[in-house]
Amino acid sequence: MAQQVCSAALAELGLDSERFEIAILACDDARIAELNGDFRAKPTATNVLSWPSEDIDLPIGASPELPDPDPDGPPHELGDIAIAFQTCAREASEQDKPFSDHVSHLLVHATLHLLGFDHINDADAAHMEAIETRILATMGIPDPY
């Protein structure tokens, strides 16, 4: 499922998923709380975390420049995603959403973060949410917002 979802996100942005790699860690709340504490100084469980392979420093409001890997070279490493089963299951239940739809949304969201998209301000959040909604629609998943 993760490969299908991340590939759909890349494809919607015009990127060939065969040219990219994303490492995904499926974990429990205890592990993601540890990661969240180590990397964000927030030692609590969260649904998903992402770490881009390249440092992306964009001004607020700027759109990221999408990577253009060498077609003859090795796949471009986009980064890592950790996703927590327990938090995702709880959130899906609380929001009355199918678990697979919620996880798909979070994987799309994290993939966009690996590419440099963010939601620091309202305009950036609206832009990112619109892209997420468009990607999810290609998979038959309703607007999560």
Rank of each mutant, 00 (worst) to 15 (best):
A41Y: 06
A130V: 01
I120H: 08
L78H: 02
A125I: 00
A41Q: 14
E18Y: 11
G116Y: 04
K42G: 04
A11I: 13
D122K: 06
A41H: 10
E21K: 14
H105S: 06
A62P: 00
G73I: 05
A130N: 12
G37R: 05
H102G: 00
A33H: 07
P59I: 08
D72Y: 10
D16L: 09
A82F: 02
T44D: 07
A126E: 11
E12W: 10
T133Q: 06
I60C: 05
A126S: 09
N121K: 04
M128L: 09
K42N: 12
I81F: 02
W51V: 05
C27R: 06
H113K: 03
V5P: 09
P64A: 14
A26I: 13
G37N: 04
V108C: 05
A11K: 15
P75F: 08
D143V: 07
E65L: 11
A110W: 01
C88A: 12
D38P: 02
P64K: 13
T111C: 03
I141D: 00
P43I: 01
A89L: 10
H113E: 04
L66D: 05
G73L: 05
I135H: 04
T133I: 08
D72Q: 12
D122V: 01
S17Y: 13
M128A: 03
T133S: 11
D72K: 09
E54H: 12
A126Q: 09
P67T: 11
L112T: 02
T111M: 03
I56Q: 03
P71N: 10
C6V: 14
P75I: 09
A84T: 08
D124K: 00
A84L: 05
L115P: 00
V5K: 02
L114P: 00
P75S: 11
E129A: 10
K42Y: 11
L35R: 06
H102M: 07
D143Q: 06
D143W: 02
T138H: 06
